[in-house]
């Protein structure tokens, strides 16, 4: 566990050396959300009606955009190859990487969500549900996305391919999360949704690092 935390810290420091790349997904998220009122019109009813879906799809895309970075620099400077022979099992190393990535990309998304929800006229109840859902699901998004990133890390331009591989797999969490927000907006009880989303989170916590490790091994072999 100590080793794991040390690995997370190391990854955090390494990623913080390139702050611009980390900010891009966040800026993308904010800009996309501010474009929607321009496209749909400023009407309060229309915007608050589509807000959960908009925020969610934009969050998915922002996470996906950042997924390309998660292993890229380690691949370029050869440190991924060293991880293969390290004493720590590869899935654990990758889990540390994913954790660091979520702390730097996922968490900021969670933090700006209330602000963006405000822009789309979501009321306080909805705002809580919205933020909670993103907090709960963004680790799942990073975990699932890491599998796509691991499979394509050796390819020169993997960015769009990752989206094609991963977006269909995001469907269940998108459905559950938007339903949770809709329930919250209507003033309903969404503990059931939270349990389901947590179940999916634990499932991907168990499976995604292993699948990512397999993907990394395959990508590095060529």
């Amino acid at each position: 566990m100590k080793l794991f935390i040390a690995a997370v810290r190391r990854d955090l420091q390494a990623q913080l050396r390139r702050p611009a790349e980390l900010l891009n997904p966040l800026i993308f998220f904010i800009i996309v959300i501010s474009l929607f009122p321009l496209g749909i019109g400023p009407s309060r009813e229309a915007l608050s009606l589509v807000a959960p879906g908009l925020l969610w799809v934009a969050a998915l895309l922002a996470t996906l955009m950042s997924m390309d970075l998660i292993f890229r620099s380690d691949f370029d400077d050869g440190s991924l190859e060293q991880m293969l022979v390290s004493a720590m099992p590869l899935p654990v190393i990758l889990l540390a990487k994913i954790t660091a990535h979520w702390l730097l990309v996922g968490l900021p998304l969670v933090l700006v969500t209330p602000l963006l929800a405000l822009l789309l006229y979501v009321d306080a109840r909805g705002m809580v549900a919205m933020t909670l859902s993103i907090l709960l699901v963004s680790p799942t998004l990073s975990l699932i996305g890491s599998v796509g990133a691991a499979l394509t890390v050796g390819l020169p331009r993997g960015g769009l391919l990752v989206a094609i591989l991963v977006l269909p797999i995001y469907v269940p969490v998108l459905i559950l999360a938007t339903a949770m927000v809709a329930t919250g907006l209507a003033g309903g009880d969404y503990t059931g949704h939270i349990y389901w989303l947590m179940a999916i989170l634990f499932l991907s916590l168990g499976l995604a690092p292993v699948a990512s490790a397999a993907g990394i091994r395959i990508s590095l072999e060529d």
Partner: peptide, 17 residues
């Protein structure tokens, strides 16, 4: 060289989902 195994991993991820 790894194309088959990469696709196999993706197929299994899809199967779980």
């Amino acid at each position: 060289a790894g194309v088959g195994r990469a696709c196999a991993v993706l197929a299994l991820v899809g199967l779980v989902n």
